[in-house]
Design a protein around this nucleic acid. Structure first.
Lengths: 241, 241
DNA sequence: CGCTAGATTGAGGTCAATCAACGGGTGTGG
DNA sequence: CCACACCCGTTGATTGACCTCAATCTAGCG
């Protein structure tokens, strides 16, 4: 319960209205592989991830799918659909066992009309989502396969605190491949080429030769997360990749 | 001035605070080809397009560029950056002569804190932007070149009112090609193949044999704009492309 | 021990990019 | 009014990156 009240979306809300919102909330569990919702459906609820990984993706008739994002604890699903209640544009699937908090869409819509703090928090969230999409977009359109894989590893490295030279892939390689817009085979081959450049890959464990090993793959989005950004230590001051 | 007050972002605002906002607004003109802002800069102002076309794109070091969106009258630039004042993630360029309304970012930020109607409008706008990005994303990842071109023509057809069988390309073919994630050569060749299927292309004028000519390219996003959607007239009821 | 799902490796195919040449409007200056 | 240059778009030939298909391998697990 405390974790719920600590969610960014609810930051700064007065306890009364928070309780009011949570009265209609529901917690659900979804097994690995379960579909949480499908594109084309009407959005009836708004979700927040409490635990686990959720894959957001689009599918087409011939079974192809393209992954928009892989979301985790604290992330929201379907902020954008709250307004225009058009059919859902995406599918969501539980990557592992997932615990979700969900709130009726109509409820959120109602609250947004009156609760200013909530509206501002939501605006901030949606902005973040939008930024992430732009970043994802960039990956797929103007980076090579190798750059995408390097970028992903660097992101992992930065998220894991910037210092540890040993990383662990957070989920299946085929899912990572999909997120990076390539086939598992291609991902595998690309890891091989990185191996030749000194980055050791063993199953799902990665060891970097040094903390600068991935700096070539830095871009302006990632730079802001790096503790060495804008310091003399940064080997790559103009991250324009 | 009336057009400004009719902007979706300002809908329902009380006149006093609207005037307050507009006090700090500025109108600027930009010639065809001019850069309005560049990625990496700090966002100092927030823009609304009053007239003309603006291209939003990302560039990388070796001169490649990928186009996120081509925006027009009434659209906003940089809603998302208002919050986190990180460096801009994109470039904006005037496609033709452009007239912009701009407001200091700090000003908007301030107003959003207090003005609930403005926050709600902004939220709605950002949501729409997010949806558009998802749609654009789908185009590039799980559609063939031909489907993308067909989709673009269909979008044009629907925007032009659903009935006229004669269309006009709104801007340069090379820009359309870029927006659809392909090279001008590829776009040209694809138009040829469509020509063989009965869609007449002559310079920048398109004539459709009948109003259903493009229905194969419909998807759930476009369907909602179609006057024949959910009627017996629709030849393609399950638009799952 | 055998099964299975995920990961790897290899060979071959394909679609769009690239490089290069050409065409045909449009505008300019003589 | 014509000659020329320039830009955009087209067309052709080739390349190459990634996908596809298929076989093999590995680890985890009953």
């Amino acid at each position: 319960m405390d974790t719920i009240k600590a969610l960014p979306l609810f930051a700064g809300l007065d306890p009364a209205s928070l309780n009011d919102i949570l009265k209609y909330a529901r917690i659900t569990n979804h097994n690995k592989g379960a579909l949480i919702f499908m594109q084309g459906e009407q959005a009836s609820r708004f979700y927040i991830i409490l635990e686990g990984w959720v894959k957001l993706f689009k599918g087409n008739v011939d079974g192809q799918e393209s992954i928009l994002q892989v979301l985790s604890t604290g992330d929201n699903l379907l902020e954008t659909v709250i307004f225009n209640d058009t059919p859902l544009p995406v599918n969501a699937q539980a990557v592992d066992n997932v615990k979700l908090l969900s709130i009726p869409a109509s409820m959120i819509r109602e609250k947004l009309k009156n609760n200013h703090a909530l509206a501002v928090n939501m605006l901030s969230t949606v902005s973040g989502r939008s930024q992430a999409l732009i970043s994802q977009f960039e990956q797929l359109t103007l980076k090579t396969v190798t750059q995408r894989v390097g970028w992903f590893l660097l992101k992992l490295f930065l998220e894991s605190g910037d210092r540890t030279k040993n990383l662990k892939l957070p989920y299946d390689k085929s899912l990572i491949a999909g997120y990076l817009g390539m086939k598992p085979e291609t991902f595998s081959r690309t890891l091989q080429t990185l191996k030749e450049q000194g980055i050791d890959v063993e199953r799902s464990s990665i060891s970097l030769p040094d903390v600068f090993a991935l700096c070539d793959f830095c871009d302006s989005d990632l730079a802001v997360q790096c503790s060495r950004h804008n310091t003399p230590e940064c080997p790559n001051p103009v991250c324009m990749n």
